[in-house]
């Protein structure tokens, strides 16, 4: 995003629209950086989605505090500014966990090289990709096309509806059906086997088709 004088002024004033714009422009790149760091062996706890999201939330909450907003000059890349805050958040969290004797923050830091971490992530992604490919193999032609449009190409529902000759509501319903079946499929293949405990009736109801 562009940091002109007006944007910087409104950012410093805490204008919600500008804060939202900053969040949307930087949340994904920051998540990507943190995840990459986690898979390289630093802050491995960030491989846990909840931990990653908590760190993102805390980082942006601090970044949007009035004093922190005032400290940003609009010249330095905001991503760097944000990463500095994220680093502080992570180190504080690590210190807190260490103090109470349950620190796992740097686990793997000495055991894994960056290549090892990258490979582990790649292997996990490959596993998911293989499952998705298998799932798509069982779809009808129309379902496959919808799946590709919505999830492969990231086309909006409206556009997907036009391309498939459906209404947006129909696309929405079919998409929901596909996701439900995917959930059941992942369950049947053991990817989500930990879910197979008492109470997971929503999976058992649907199952893999």
């Amino acid at each position: 995003m562009e940091w002109d004088d007006d944007t910087l002024r409104r950012f410093r004033e805490g204008t919600p629209e500008v804060l939202a714009e900053v969040y949307r422009a930087h949340a994904e790149p920051l998540a990507r950086l943190l995840k990459a760091a986690a898979w390289r062996g630093a802050f491995v706890r960030l491989r846990n989605a909840m931990e990653l999201e908590n760190t993102l939330l805390e980082t942006f909450a601090r970044a949007f505090e009035p004093r922190t907003r005032a400290a940003y000059n609009g010249t330095r890349p905001y991503a760097h500014f944000l990463m500095g805050i994220a680093r502080n958040v992570l180190l504080e969290q690590s210190r807190e966990r260490e103090l109470v004797g349950r620190d796992e923050a740097f686990e793997g830091l000495t055991e894994s090289s960056p290549e090892d971490g990258g490979l582990a992530e790649l292997l996990e992604d490959r596993e998911v990709e293989a499952l998705l490919a298998a799932f798509k193999g069982g779809l009808s032609r129309e379902e496959h096309r919808l799946f590709e449009l919505r999830f492969g190409e990231g086309v909006a529902q409206e556009e997907a509806a036009t391309a498939l000759g459906l209404t947006r509501i129909q696309v929405r319903r079919r998409e929901f059906g596909l996701k439900s079946r995917l959930l059941g499929f992942l369950q049947s293949k053991g990817y989500l086997e930990d879910l197979e405990t008492q109470g997971w009736s929503f999976f058992k109801r649907r199952g893999a088709r």
Partner: peptide, 17 residues
């Protein structure tokens, strides 16, 4: 579970978040 579901979504959307 949340992490595994997130990973599937990430692969589908090609996004970290």
């Amino acid at each position: 579970t949340y992490t595994r579901l997130s990973r599937v979504e990430s692969v589908l959307e090609q996004r970290a978040l």
